[in-house]
Amino acid sequence: MTTQILIAGFGGQGVLFAGKFLAYKGMLEDKQVSWLPSYGPEMRGGTANCSIIISDDPVGSPIVSTPDALIAMNLPSFDKYENAVVSGGKVFIDSTLIGRKAQRTDIDAYYIPATKMAADAGIPTLANMIILGKMIKETGAVSFENMVDVMKKIVSAKRAELIDINIKALEAGYNYEG
């Protein structure tokens, strides 16, 4: 199985971090993974996105141009990438920030008020992980086990307090039914 994932949003929404977490999780499951960010001036507050591929086979091109799964964390990203998603693919939409519904009928759309959920839970910077939790549940791209191990790999020991709240955010998304 190969899952091609695109995560897109504003710079500062944790798009790259969510992608990195996902890639790390895949790697620890002995899968082949790649993570490729957009880079350049747009990282500083403009739009940011990253391509993640998780596969049982060696990864060819690391560029995801036709995602199996799209996480859209703002409207410009959703507008830009909705049509790129493969037929039968899944889109995960932060419905707090994106007012419209998916126009395509050949894809599964999931609407998660991630930004609001994060704010309500007192973890306003973690909408990215909430929506990622939902994506993991619906795609099965990686398993939901041993999340803490992954977190420990990518969060520095000095900021260990971040581990718990990230896990909390992932679980909130994973368990979200809406």
Partner: peptide
């Protein structure tokens, strides 16, 4: 190239 430099892999 820029892709090789920026991408992460195991």
């Amino acid at each position: 190239d820029g892709t090789m430099g920026q991408m992460m892999e195991p």
